[in-house]
């Protein structure tokens, strides 16, 4: 199949012809679908509880410098046992899978694919349009949710959010959308690979459960296997920790929670173990400036976006090679 450049040389016309109409149509389909309604209700049901409980707790806080608005997201109310962010950590993949698991195979099954592809567009436009529409839908829901949380905070706490809180909140949105993008790309990859939407959904959910439940166990098993030798120095220990974190970071969920931790808890100085030498001169509990927090999670953000692109590219390659006949 050669590189992108040689493809462009070989065929004429922009691969993006028709991407607009595909995007608009898919977006309209998503926004008017029953599935969308169900997903929204799902998000509200899971999100409202932690947010309401956090707000109850936070009303008693008087410190104006304590990033009140960010704590709506991160506070783990006792009666709920899960913070809003932790809830999002598994709602986001579910939503993204819900939006993407049948995006290509349903066109096969409805026998619309060959008819649509016989219009003057490339397959690129169809896949890209569908992906962007899914991402846009997802972003709309997330932004709405975010605004509701900030709005509720504004009403119930009675203080406006500070600029830096809004900035961190927006950063959180971007990270959340990229996290959803990975899962959207994964579910679309399955929708290209598997003709049956049910199987595709099952595979995507299976992968999600694997990363959620099994991967942490597996990673620690691998690490304890690697630690069979004696740990003789701090370096040995640090190397082991690096391995453990490296393995955990293969899961998009880990990248998301680390990025969110640094963004929404400004006092986070490191995402790994900290050596005493690094603590020198640090005031414990003092918040980092926003740009320093961003710097801290830059690898996580690029990892999320790169992961999204890699998975999408895989779906793209498979789709290009597929026969369109049903």
């Amino acid at each position: 199949m050669g590189s992108r450049a040689s493809l462009a040389l070989r065929r004429q016309g922009s691969p993006f012809t028709g991407i607009g109409p595909v995007l608009v149509k898919e977006l309209a389909d998503h926004l008017s679908s029953v599935r969308m309604l169900v997903l929204t209700l799902f998000v509200i049901a899971f999100g409202a509880f932690p947010v309401a409980s956090s707000l109850q707790t936070l009303r008693t806080v008087v410190d104006p410098n304590s990033f009140l608005f960010l704590r709506i997201f991160t506070l783990e109310p006792e009666q709920v046992g899960i913070s809003f962010v932790a809830a999002l950590n598994f709602i986001i993949p579910l939503m993204a899978i819900g939006l993407g698991f049948d995006s290509v195979n349903s066109e096969f099954n409805r026998r619309t694919l060959s008819r649509v592809l016989s219009q003057p567009i490339y397959r690129d436009a169809l896949l890209m349009g569908k992906f962007l529409a899914g991402l846009a839908t997802f972003a709309v829901v997330l932004v709405a949710l975010w605004l509701m949380v900030f709005g509720a905070g504004l009403l119930l706490l009675g203080v406006p959010p500070r600029g830096v809180e809004v900035a961190r909140g927006v950063g959180f949105l971007v990270v959340a959308i990229a996290y959803g993008g990975i899962w959207l790309a994964i579910s679309m990859l399955f929708s290209v690979l598997l003709r049956s939407p049910a199987t595709s959904a099952l595979c995507a959910l299976g992968l999600w459960l694997f990363f959620l439940l099994l991967w942490p166990q597996l990673a620690s098993a691998i690490v304890s296997g690697a630690a069979a030798g004696e740990i003789r120095s701090v370096e040995d220990y640090a190397a082991l920790q690096d391995l453990a974190m490296g393995l955990m970071r293969l899961s998009p969920g880990t990248l998301f929670s680390e990025a969110v931790l640094a963004l929404l808890s400004p006092e986070t100085r490191t995402l790994g173990p900290m050596l005493p030498a690094q603590m020198r001169g640090a005031i414990l509990g003092a918040p980092l400036p926003f740009d320093q927090s961003l710097l801290l999670i830059w690898p996580q953000i690029t990892g999320l976006i790169a992961g999204m692109i890699v998975v999408f590219a895989a779906a793209y390659v498979v789709f290009q090679r597929q026969e369109v006949r049903a």
Binding site: R10, R11, Q12, G13, T17, R110, R111, T112, S114, R115, S118, Q119, P120, I121, Y122, A326
Partner: peptide, 19 residues
């Protein structure tokens, strides 16, 4: 090499067309 030009001018009704 020029699928878009072809597809702009050719109408296709597939076997058991779907909408």
């Amino acid at each position: 090499r020029q699928p878009l030009e072809v597809k702009r001018r050719v109408g296709y009704l597939p076997d058991a067309v779907g909408f």
